[in-house]
Structure formats: C-alpha cells, structure tokens
Design a protein around this nucleic acid. Structure first.
Length: 357
DNA sequence: CGCCTTTGACCGGCGC
DNA sequence: GCGCCGGTCAAAGGCG
C-alpha cells in the first residue's frame, strides 16, 4: 500500500508515522523521542534533531516563540470557526511541519504523540448525516419517523451536493501512543466497540470505538504498533460534548474526582479542565510507580518542570484533547499525554513561552 | 434485559 | 472500471 503510505505522509496520519517511521526519524519535524535506557525498547534513536529549526524545537527548547507566533505559524485562529475550518485545508498542506511532542531531547524517555488535523468539527453534522443516510438505506426497517425524515432530507441534500468536490469531512484527530499491555485503555469515558479491522502490514488489528454517550460522536481507534507491540496507538476523533462519566473506577478521572485540588493550579485558566490538566500533575505518579518495569515516560528536565507536550492540530480552539488513559493498569503503561498545542501554555505553566513566575 | 463485543458484509475513496 | 483498503454497519451472541 505504498500509495496510501504516501498519501498518509501528507495527511500526517499518526498511524502511518508510528508504523513506518518509528525508528527512522526521517520526518524532520516529527520525531519519536525514545528512551535509550528503557529495558524493553529497541528504539535507540530518534531524538530531536538539533539542527531542526521547528515548532518542535521551540517547544522543546523554549526558543523565543510565543503563542501568537505559533498560532500564526499554523495559520490558526482560536476564535472563529470559519477560520478554523478554512485553516484546515491550509494546514493540511502544512501538516508535515507541525507536530512533535517531547521534552528535553537529552533526557526524555519514550514518548510519542501526534495529532492529525483532518477536518473541522463544525462539519461533524454533515459527516454523521451522510452516515445516517447510509444507515437508513441499508436498514429501512425499524427506523423511527424522525430519523426517516432526517434521512430523507439528508438524502436530498446529498443528491444536490456535488459528490466529488466536497470531501467527507473528518473530525480533528488526536493520536498518542502508550506503552501498555492492554489495548483499550480506560480513559474515563464509556466506549462501545463498533468494529475491528485487520491492518495492512500489521499483525495487530485496529479496533474502532465510539463514545456511548448520546449525541457524542467521538470515536477512537486503537491499534498496536507492529514495530513495537508494547506500544498502543490511540487516536481520538472528535470532541466530547459531555463530561466524563462518573462511573469510573481507578481511572485517572477518579483521581480527578477525588482530588480536585490537583487541578487547582491549572484549572484557573481553563475552568472546564480536561484530563491533561491533571495529567501533568499525575505524571509523577505514573512514572514512578512503574519504575520496576519501565523507565519513566518523561523525565523532568532542566527546561520544564513537567515536560509533557502535545500538539493538537485539530484547529478547534475548544477541542479538548482526549482524556488520558487511566491507570487501572498503570504500572504497565507508559503514557503519552496529549495536549492541544494551543492549550499548552494554558495547561502547562511550565510550557516554554509562558514562564511560570 | 440491557449493554457490550464479535465479525462478516458493505460502502466510499483512491490509485492504477 | 477494477481492486484494494479503511471505516462503518448491524446481526448474532455473550455476559452480568
């Protein structure tokens, strides 16, 4: 599937990256940060290229680039959905220059994460409508009136639409990798598996999950890296329009619920705190608890108190990066925590460019 | 009984 | 136009 690979390179599919570039580091601006001392890891290379002048470097090394600069660099607007929408296509072209996560290149342990911006969340309705149309075509029986009417109008809409011109929009995607023995990491939300597919060039299947909450069309895909089966790649698509369900056991969200004080520092900025807020707080827990089996995912370093960086290129200023996998099995996980790049400064006081006083 | 997973079929996009 | 592939659907079955 060389063609798809080529295509994905430009679409910046994290899966592609994971599966094919893990050890190669030939993607100039998106590199895997690996743990050279990690016992079980074969990745011995992939540190940030010091010669690379990139967003990454700015993040990692705290170069003088402020948030606005970053925003401009990615042609982002944080206020206008229209701009967001339009910026997506533009950004698509820019994608290869736009994502990296990591910390200090000299001390960071295994961590990879990526984000993929493929569509505007505002187009979600259209997306789902086309799906429902398809659904109803397939299954004419048992449909409720509402839905039928819906389907009707949507069908007509589809008829009037030029099919080829308008590509099916996709939700912003957000991917990250974790080192875990379990595929489906508990993240506080309830998911229903709706499909599983074999992945080409990989012995491991890809699972498709959908948030079970009504009207929440967030999806996620979970697959293992075939290059390193211990790595689970989770890709979130869309944005939760609801709070984390309260039925959490031993999950990060539970920790959140039980220790709201953890949020005290960061939630000042974003009252609607998302898990990455407290993840940065929780990180030490994650990393120290599994010291027997794994190296810490991310080391603290001289530059950042908490060098968890995640770029979300979804271009949705309100797009909450997915909640992190919770740690029912935390001793087995190496976490890569997602962050909206636009939220980096908000979420992480230690984020370079927003120096904590 | 409700919720979930499994799994084969189907669909659309894309490259050739 | 054809075939490949990713993504989704939905029936069937399992489980608590």
């Amino acid at each position: 599937m060389a063609n798809n690979e080529d295509k994905d390179q430009f679409h910046f599919d994290p899966f592609y990256y994971n599966n094919h570039e893990l050890n190669q580091s030939n993607f100039p601006l998106f590199r895997m940060i690996t743990n050279t001392s990690s016992s079980s890891h074969h990745h011995q290379e992939g540190f940030i290229d010091n010669n690379t002048t990139s967003f990454t470097d700015c993040l990692l090394h705290g170069n003088s680039m402020d948030y606005n600069t970053l925003s401009r660099a990615f042609d982002l607007s944080c206020s206008s959905p229209e701009v967001i929408s339009s910026s997506i296509d533009e950004n698509k072209n820019q994608l290869p220059s736009s994502s990296v996560v990591g910390g200090d290149s000299t001390t960071l342990n295994s961590s990879v994460s990526s984000s993929s911006n493929e569509a505007d969340a505002s187009l979600t309705e259209e997306d789902s409508s086309s799906k429902s149309t398809k659904k109803h075509e397939k299954q004419p029986k048992g449909c409720q009136q509402e839905e039928e009417e819906d389907a009707k109008s949507k069908k007509e809409n589809n008829k009037n639409k030029p099919k080829k011109k308008e590509k099916k929009p996709r939700e912003p995607r957000f991917a990250f990798m974790t080192k875990s023995e379990i595929d489906h990491l508990e993240d506080g939300y309830r998911w229903r598996k709706y499909g599983q597919k074999a992945v080409k060039n990989s012995p491991y299947p890809r699972s498709y999950y959908r948030c079970t909450t009504q009207k929440c069309n967030v999806k996620k895909r979970v697959e293992r890296s075939y290059q390193d089966p211990s790595i689970v790649i989770t890709t979130y698509e869309g944005q939760h329009n609801h709070h984390c369900p309260a039925t959490l056991r031993g999950s990060a969200a539970t920790v959140f619920a039980s220790s709201p004080s953890l949020f005290a520092s960061t939630s000042l900025i974003r009252p609607t705190s998302f898990p990455q807020d407290f993840l940065s707080q929780l990180l030490p827990t994650y990393t120290t608890n599994n010291s027997n089996t794994h190296q810490p995912l991310i080391n603290n370093n001289n530059h950042h108190q908490n060098p968890i960086f995640q770029l979300n290129l979804g271009h949705n200023p309100h797009y909450p990066p997915p909640p992190p996998p919770s740690q029912e099995h935390q001793e087995q996980h190496h976490l890569q925590f997602p962050h909206d790049y636009g939220l980096l400064q908000d979420l992480l006081p230690s984020f370079p460019g927003k120096q904590e006083p």
